[in-house]
């Protein structure tokens, strides 16, 4: 065992005061340097990120609320617009039916008027025709009569006959 341990690369070399001082020195220097160059910036960055994330969450929360409000507003707007459109359609329908009625009414009136005027015209035309017919019949009858009378009738018979015809012609239509 003695031989084995004497071969060891290691052996506690006892306490060296210089080592202790050196260790203290090295450690303090290392601590200071790392604090300045590594841990400090790293922790600042981590803090920065923490703040950033918190900020982002807050912003997201805010914009979500805003979106909800806007959504509500938009849907209200939509509802109102729909209502308006409904009203407009309703109005249009009413107006249309009113107009329809008016048109029909005026058409009826017009038709009535045309009918009346047509009737009057017909009446007039008929009267005129009757008048013309009367005249013609009169003259024709005179002609016929004169022809017949020439043959056999007296003046008196002739007159009776004529007026009878005229009357008949006036009654018939």
């Amino acid at each position: 065992m003695q031989g084995l341990t004497s071969n060891l690369a290691l052996g506690a070399a006892g306490f060296q005061l210089g080592d202790m001082v050196a260790q203290l020195f090295f450690f303090i220097v290392l601590l200071a340097l790392l604090r300045k160059f590594a841990w400090g910036p790293l922790m600042t960055m981590m803090k920065d990120r923490e703040d950033y994330i918190a900020n982002e969450i807050e912003t997201a929360e805010k914009s979500r609320e805003e979106a909800a409000i806007q959504h509500r507003e938009a849907s209200e707007e939509l509802k109102k617009t729909r209502q308006d459109a409904q009203n407009i359609i309703e109005d249009a329908r009413k107006t249309a039916s009113q107009q329809e009625r008016d048109i029909v009414e005026s058409a009826k009136k017009e038709a009535e008027r045309i009918k009346v005027s047509a009737r009057q015209e017909i009446e007039q035309e008929r009267d005129k025709a009757v008048q013309v017919l009367k005249d013609q019949v009169a003259s024709m009858s005179v002609m016929i009569a004169s022809k017949v009378i020439e043959k056999e009738l007296s003046e008196k018979d002739q007159q009776e006959l004529i007026s009878q015809y005229i009357n008949e012609a006036g009654e018939e239509r």
Binding site: L10, A12, G14, F15, Q16, D19, L24
Partner: peptide
């Protein structure tokens, strides 16, 4: 691996 150093720490 040196006691002096660990004791210093």
């Amino acid at each position: 691996a040196d006691p002096g150093i660990t004791m210093t720490l």
